[in-house]
C-alpha cells in the first residue's frame, strides 16, 4: 500500500470526528466572525456585555433543563415556574417588609417544591415526563396568577431590583450568576457521583437500577435542580423588570430546550455537557443580537433560529 496516498475512509472519519467535537464551536466562531465584519459595533466590550446579559436567563434555564435531559427526562414547565417564582419573590420583596434573603429563599423553595412534585409524579406515579411537566406548566401558571391575583406585583425594594440591574466591576450581576451556575453545574456533572449517576440513568435506566443506583432519587433531584435554577432565573427576571409578572416567561422552556439540543445533548438521555449547552445559549444570543444590529426583522429571526435548531440536530445525526 502506498503510504503517501491518503486513505479516503480514514480522512472521512477524521472529518466526521472533527465535525462531532467542534462542529458547533466552529459554526459559532464563524458566525461571530461574519457578524463582526458586517456590523462595526458587534465586536466590542459593550456589545459583548449586552449579549451576555441577554442570554443569562435563558442560560440559567438551559443549564437546569440539561440536567433533566441528560437523565432521560424533559421539563416543559420552566417558563411558568419562572413566572410563579418571580411573583413569589416579588411578594416578599416590598421595601421594609422582609430581608432580601427571605424573598430569594421563598422563590427558590417554591421552585424546588415544584421540581419535587414533577420528579415524584414521574418516578412514583410513573407518568411520562412530557405529560407531567406539560400539566405542571399550566399549574404553575395558575399558581402565579393566583398568588398575584392576576396583576403584576410592583413596588419592589431597591436591593431586590439591584440583582437584575446592577453590576460588579462592569459585569452585570445576572451574568455573574450565570457564570457561577456554569461552574457549579459543570462541577456537579463531571466531578461528583451524582453527575455520573445522572448520565447512567439517562444512558440506560434499567442497567442503572440493576447496578444499585437509586434511580428515582437521581431523577427527582434532576427535576429539583432544574426547577431550582428556574427559580433563580425567575428572581433575576422579576428583578430586571422590577415586577413580579404572572404572565412572564411564556415559552421560555422552548428556548432553553433549543439551546440544549444545539449544544449536542441527546434528547434520549445519557449524552450531553454543560459546555455544549452554554455554546447553544451563546449561539442563539449572538444570532439574535447580530440580526438586531443588522436590522433584520424579528420575523426572520424566528425562522433563522428554527433553522439552526434543525441544522444542529442534523449535524448530530451525522455522528
Amino acid at each position: 500500500m502506498n503510504m503517501n496516498e491518503p486513505l479516503p475512509l480514514v480522512s472521512k472519519l477524521a472529518k466526521r470526528n472533527y465535525l462531532r467535537k467542534y462542529g458547533m464551536l466552529t459554526a459559532f466562531l464563524l458566525i461571530c466572525l461574519v457578524l463582526s465584519l458586517l456590523t462595526p459595533g458587534f465586536f466590542s466590550i459593550q456589545n459583548t456585555t449586552i449579549i451576555l446579559r441577554q442570554v443569562s436567563i435563558n442560560g440559567i434555564l438551559a443549564i437546569g433543563v440539561t440536567f433533566v435531559i441528560i437523565s432521560g427526562g424533559i421539563d416543559l414547565s420552566l417558563g411558568s415556574v419562572v413566572a410563579f417564582t418571580g411573583v413569589v419573590a416579588a411578594l416578599f420583596a416590598h421595601p421594609g417588609e422582609y430581608p432580601l434573603i427571605i424573598a430569594l429563599g421563598m422563590a427558590i423553595l417554591a421552585g424546588l417544591a415544584i421540581g419535587g412534585v414533577n420528579g415524584l409524579a414521574v418516578t412514583r406515579g410513573k407518568v411520562a415526563p412530557f405529560i407531567v411537566t406539560l400539566g405542571m406548566m399550566t399549574i404553575a401558571r395558575g399558581l402565579a396568577l393566583l398568588a398575584s391575583d392576576g396583576r403584576p406585583v410592583t413596588g419592589l425594594s431597591d436591593s431586590f431590583n439591584y440583582i437584575g440591574g446592577g453590576s460588579v466591576l462592569g459585569v452585570p450581576i445576572p451574568v455573574l450568576i450565570f457564570g457561577a451556575i456554569i461552574l457549579l453545574s459543570s462541577f456537579i456533572l463531571n466531578k461528583t457521583r451524582l453527575g455520573r449517576y445522572l448520565y447512567a440513568v439517562g444512558g440506560n435506566e434499567k442497567a442503572a437500577y440493576a447496578s444499585g443506583i437509586r434511580v428515582n432519587s437521581v431523577k427527582v433531584l434532576s427535576y429539583m435542580i432544574c426547577s431550582g435554577l428556574a427559580a433563580i432565573a425567575g428572581i433575576v427576571l422579576a428583578s430586571r423588570i422590577t415586577t413580579g409578572q404572572p404572565n412572564a416567561g411564556l415559552a421560555y422552556e422552548l428556548d432553553a430546550i433549543a439551546a440544549v439540543v444545539i449544544g449536542g445533548t441527546s434528547l434520549s438521555g445519557g449524552i450531553g455537557s454543560i459546555g455544549g449547552t452554554v455554546l447553544g445559549v451563546l449561539l442563539i444570543g449572538v444570532i439574535n443580537n447580530g440580526l438586531d444590529l443588522l436590522n433584520v426583522s424579528s420575523y426572520y429571526q424566528q425562522i433563522i433560529k428554527g433553522a439552526i435548531i434543525i441544522a444542529a440536530a442534523l449535524i448530530d445525526r451525522k455522528k
Binding site: 457521583r193 455520573r196 449517576y197 448520565y199 447512567a200 444512558g203 440506560n204 434499567k206 442497567a207 442503572a208 440493576a210 447496578s211 444499585g212 443506583i213 445519557g270 449524552i271
Partner: peptide, 21 residues
C-alpha cells in the same frame, strides 16, 4: 444490553459504575 450496560458510556465508567461509591 437491557440490564447490564450503559452502551454510550465508556468501558471505564461501566466497570466502576456498580462500585462507584
Amino acid at each position: 444490553k437491557q440490564w447490564g450496560l450503559i452502551p454510550d458510556a465508556s468501558v471505564k465508567q461501566n466497570i466502576v459504575l456498580r462500585s462507584l461509591k
